[in-house]
Design a protein around this nucleic acid. Sequence first.
DNA 1: TTTATTTGCGCAAACGTTGTCGGGAACGTT
DNA 2: AACGTTCCCGACAACGTTTGCGCAAATAAA
Lengths: 345, 345
Amino acid sequence: MEAATLKDIARELNISVSTVSRALRDSYEINAETKRLVMECAARLHYRPNPIALSLKGSSSKAIAVVVPQIANYYFSQAINGIEEVANRRGYDVLIFQTHETYEREVANLRQAVARRVDGVLISLSSETSDTSHLQELQQHGMPIVQFDRVSGELNTPRVVADNFGGAFAATDHLIKTGRRRIAHLTIQPWLSITQERLAGYRAALEQNGLPYDESLVRFGTFGPDEVGPLVDELMALTPRPDAFFTASDRLALGCLAALRQRRIAIPEEVSLVGFTNLTVADMLSPSLSTVVQPAMEIGQEAVSRLLDLIELKHRAAPPTTITIPTTMVLRESSQLAVGRFEEV
Amino acid sequence: MEAATLKDIARELNISVSTVSRALRDSYEINAETKRLVMECAARLHYRPNPIALSLKGSSSKAIAVVVPQIANYYFSQAINGIEEVANRRGYDVLIFQTHETYEREVANLRQAVARRVDGVLISLSSETSDTSHLQELQQHGMPIVQFDRVSGELNTPRVVADNFGGAFAATDHLIKTGRRRIAHLTIQPWLSITQERLAGYRAALEQNGLPYDESLVRFGTFGPDEVGPLVDELMALTPRPDAFFTASDRLALGCLAALRQRRIAIPEEVSLVGFTNLTVADMLSPSLSTVVQPAMEIGQEAVSRLLDLIELKHRAAPPTTITIPTTMVLRESSQLAVGRFEEV
DNA sequence: TTTATTTGCGCAAACGTTGTCGGGAACGTT
DNA sequence: AACGTTCCCGACAACGTTTGCGCAAATAAA
């Protein structure tokens, strides 16, 4: 039962290794009876082709790499679940790599992926990555690449993203419709595509509702656990002070929630709060958190589908499109009394 | 720059492939000057040994597999971070596999790991797994294995676990010391080692404090999101009704919190609540959640260290020990007014 | 019968690497 | 001068597969 090889089958049946190989691949030049014998023997010995040898041969390795900033993150782990599901269904293995948000690890991970002869790469850029030449080079060497979530415009690949603009627009519009006028926007690193799109959606909703876009209400950064408090103080010191916070991430929303509660600022009476993405505990918080939900699993599924198409059909000719997956707004207590859902295009 | 091989270096320098191989491995039978030339050329061509070819050769693949129930889980992703850190530092790659809590995927994952020629396996059993013959067989074929977190006694390998008994004891003892007498215990699948140990700790603390162990206060199961509510109703209907809940997982604690809040049962006035493990948002909940914290990263680091020792030193002779990593109790609002920390042995 | 064609299968090369063996050159020893 | 060493290095096999080529036997066409 120790890792049967073609050779074992060949020896058992007194035929050559090549015949066994061809029989298993159902080649036309092998006798039906021989095929039957080989199949039967292979089943009996629990034969499984050795993927390592296959990779070495240079053909496909039936494995893809997914490179994400971190897996200790509900959004990414959900995306990976979607990726695995589709990939496994289509006969591929998934190798998971974490960049821990550093450029250095991203490069190292990609090198690893190449070394392990993956057939393609699915990547969500680290927040440190601004230069994408490492990926461009990879692509020029013929590696199929699909970007998702954190994408770069420099890189000419298919992209699968959530509708960040639409989600931010919907959230901001909701806040305005419920009477808010001074809406602060706390967001992440400014050079990320998702940041820009969310900011644009926020801004568009303001302008469409005839409200001014005030730069002093927008803050960028990778706020550590202790940095949100001071930031909230700073914003609340403005005149007129903000009556709503729209944050571009889980962590920021949680930080705000904690900071506001600590400062005894009533949510949503004094300040409304809306987050972005789909923290599992959002509805168990107090107050429960209104959020723009990103369909992480669906994004993963869509991205991996594109990648596998690229690998299998070699559709390099097809223009790299950007696929936008709709987001959903979930209204909870932090932005209003009523609890309900509405879909957003 | 396209994946340089030994052959490329050999051609460039007009020497044989074997000489190049030996020069790079600093063999004593290669002239110093030749070595220098080879090294220089290898650096220039960005040569990296092909791990696939190495694996095929049968030597070590410098990769280990880590098989966990799921990565969309703070505990496991932290453990993986610890594993990756130590493994990378010691020159190994980490292949991550998810069982999604099913036996079937666990078997498939292990097969995959073997096919990819990993040097060893780090595993936390799926909740469906009661029979461990697949792992025993693997082990008999010489695969180094270390279990962590969810371990089986049937399987004779090193084990790295949190001090589940101690943590549960401390939590229960804390509840008793703060005046609680009817402490319900909500826990997971009864056949898991962690379940049994936590239950034992709970029971020991009761008995040591002269309180009876009441089976009707202990509930096992994989409670879905909608099942916790009814369960809480059921427990609260008992007479005398419970004045504290001690749960064996994140999800259960959150579920209880939500269910109790919905039912307007005051925490901690009417019912105290203590969870197990280290949800990031625990201190942002309302009320913030007292928990027994498991040092996930440390458990991962310890486990992978044992595995690499097993791989490298072939210390098969050493008796498989169980390493217990201490847990910590973090007291927050859900179990009392005061907020503080104390260490637990 | 001789000559084509098909059918079924084996040989050998290749993927990148390591390890075993063997051999030539230069040196030192009898 | 013949022999034994030491020092460097190359040829070859092997890991498990796939694949192009060739070869024999059987069948078909002349």
